[in-house]
């Protein structure tokens, strides 16, 4: 049953077995085509496994479904250095902390340090207490001179 498959996906995720999680998500999709949770699990599992090409393929396979995968797609574009395309995908999206974090990294790679710092300023309202964030802000300040 689909419930058992999702239980299996959950266990694989907990174990960090992301390729396995993606495979089981695919089984769900065979039984329940277009299942949104399964689509999301498959895409995220490939991203977590650093299989960006496979994540892209899963996103493309779901293109006709009414599921917004644009953040995942933007992240995959960023990983493949398609930075303008990544920015386009983020444009107009709600400024969640995830969107702002990705945006700041894209701006950094593009050398747009003012925009990068402005993303970090907007991130402050989320009160993220993260050493990674502090390190990235320092990197941007150093790069900005």
């Amino acid at each position: 049953a689909v419930e058992d498959l999702f239980t299996s996906i959950h266990r694989h995720i907990e174990a960090g077995a992301f390729e396995q999680a993606a495979k089981v998500a695919d089984q769900v999709l065979k039984a329940a085509p277009g299942d949104e949770d399964a689509v999301r699990c498959k895409v995220v599992a490939y991203i977590k496994a650093d299989e960006i090409d496979k994540a892209f393929a899963a996103i493309r396979a779901a293109e006709r479904l009414p599921i917004d995968l644009s953040y995942y797609k933007a992240y995959c574009c960023y990983r493949q250095n398609k930075l303008q395309e990544a920015l386009e995908l983020l444009r107009g999206q709600e400024e969640t902390s995830a969107v702002l974090q990705l945006e700041s990294q894209i701006f950094y790679r593009l050398g747009r340090m003012n925009d990068c710092m402005s993303s970090y300023e907007k991130l402050q309202k989320f009160k993220i207490d993260s050493m990674d964030l502090k390190i990235n802000i320092i990197a941007a300040l150093v790069a900005a001179g």
């Binding site: 995720i13 949104e36 699990c41 995942y72 974090q101 993260s130 990674d132 941007a140």
Partner: peptide, 21 residues
Amino acid sequence: NPIVLDMAYNAVEFPSLENRM
């Protein structure tokens, strides 16, 4: 330029499967 940590990777999240299991 210093290396920037990939915070966005951690921000990519699985959906909650609570109600699906």
